[in-house]
Design a protein around this nucleic acid. Structure first.
Length: 402
RNA sequence: UGUUCCGUGGUGUAAUGGUAGCACAGAUGGUUUUGGUCCAUCUAGUCAGGGUUCAAAUCCUUGCGGAACAA
């Protein structure tokens, strides 16, 4: 007899990707268990009202039946609310723009869900993410690498940028080598109910929400001024030598400093319903027309409830060359590659999902990690995650502090 | 009070006698497992009344509203 089959619990979401993840695992000879997690059932602010988790559960169950694997469900909505949604509200309240899905992976799918899976006796836990894992040996120790999915169009490694070695150790990403169209095709051939289901969008588990409405559950609306900042404002003059090779702490700090707006630098042109409903780079929702080019949010101030905007795609307020991550927020997916004090290293960095990787240099300083980009970046926003890559491997990440 | 100028979609503007266009805003849809971006489509207007003309945003006139100038 061969050794006992390894047991894998796969998170079945009721979508096509996790369906095929389960299928691939089965093909590979694992003992597969499907586990559906219910995370959200509140429909406040959700567009397309029908509360979809039940449909998803039915679909997940149907897939499990078709693949002839056991099916279980866990309700993690309590934890999801506490560890993802509350975090979201609190970040917005501070005027930052969180990425709940990165948190969802770190806190839910690869934490509480993980534990539930292990309770079912799992050796591994699998998800339908488009990314890959590789195991290498460094100093006689196994090290797990998180790689981009093979389908460059669907690579979801960014959302897993906060995973730890411990989490990666038991993780499997069965569809990381597949292209999305192949996933659809296989699902079609297997006649799975999820074969032609639309890809999920919006905050994972919550769905596509009207964000202001969603946030209004906890955050008050409050009228404030919208202020237009001219592109030639002195605020945008950074008399730092953009040759950041010298990389003194001063230069790094200057490059990573958000523009400090105040109404004296511009002109009041309208009103908004709360600065915390806006994020840098945002165009829609200002409700101010009459300009030759669109207006974009270039800064918000929740303390004084002010929104600062600039006209046009190339407004200098939209761009910055550097950002900073607080020392305690630096996360290395590969701890063996951690920078030492005052060390610098070049990486490819993205600051949002699906952004093409940008050439950048990381500097570890006493007060945190500075990242400077070769090209100015649009919409560097506190609360979002910066993730650095070496080729297609995600090395580390952190919440942008400023 | 007098003279002059102006009044076009929600906003900013184009069309000076010949099918009222553009931009921004807004709505809807698409792309996207964050926010946002982006793409497509759509909505919506000649201040009001009278007149000239085959034809008026455009010319004339009255009213209303705004701006400028005025010993």
């Amino acid at each position: 007899m061969s050794a006992k089959k390894k047991k894998v619990v796969v998170g079945l979401s009721g979508g096509v990707d996790s369906s095929i993840a389960a299928f691939v695992l089965k093909e590979q000879g694992y003992d597969v268990i499907g586990l559906f997690m219910k995370n959200w059932h509140d429909t406040t602010g959700v567009l397309k009202a029908d509360c979809p988790w039940l449909d998803d559960k039915f679909d997940a169950e149907a897939v499990a039946r078709k693949l002839e694997i056991p099916f279980h469900m866990v309700d993690l909505s309590d934890q999801y609310r506490k560890r993802v949604v509350d975090y979201m509200f609190s970040e917005y309240e501070k005027g930052r723009t969180p990425n709940p899905d990165v948190l969802c992976n770190r806190e839910i799918k690869f934490d509480v869900f993980f534990d539930e899976a292990l309770k079912l006796g799992a050796d591994f836990v699998a998800t339908g993410h488009y990314c890959r894992k590789r195991t290498i040996t460094v100093d006689d120790k196994e090290v797990y690498c998180l790689l981009a999915g093979s389908d460059p169009n669907k690579d979801q490694s960014y959302f897993l940028c906060q995973l730890s070695q411990k989490q990666l150790q038991k993780a499997l990403f069965p569809i990381g080598d597949l292209q999305k169209p192949d996933v659809r095709r296989i699902a079609g051939e297997l006649k799975l109910v999820t074969a032609h289901k639309r890809d999920s969008q919006g905050i994972c588990f919550v769905g596509k929400v009207d964000l202001p409405v969603f946030l209004q559950q906890k955050l008050d609306t409050k009228k404030g001024d919208v202020i237009l900042i001219p592109p030639d404002s002195e605020l945008f003059i950074r008399d730092v030598n953009s040759d950041s090779n010298k990389a003194s702490e001063e230069i790094l700090q200057a490059l990573s400093e958000p523009y400090r707006f105040n109404p004296n630098y511009g002109e009041k042109i309208g009103q908004h319903n709360g600065a915390h409903f806006f994020t840098i780079g945002q165009r829609k929702g200002l409700n101010i027309g009459g300009y030759s080019e669109p207006l974009f949010v270039i800064g918000t101030d929740v303390e004084f409830n002010q929104v600062f905007v600039g006209m046009g795609q190339n407004h200098p307020g939209l761009f910055r060359k550097g950002l900073k991550i607080s020392g305690n927020e630096i996360h290395w997916v590969r701890p063996d590659l951690e920078l030492s004090d005052d060390e610098r290293r070049t990486y490819k960095v993205r600051i949002r999902y699906r952004q093409p990787l940008q050439d950048a240099t990381l500097f570890l300083k006493k007060d945190g990690l500075y990242i400077t980009f070769n090209e100015p970046q649009r919409g560097i926003t506190a609360g979002q995650f910066a993730a650095w890559y070496s080729d297609d491997e995600l090395i580390g990440s952190g919440v942008i502090d400023k």
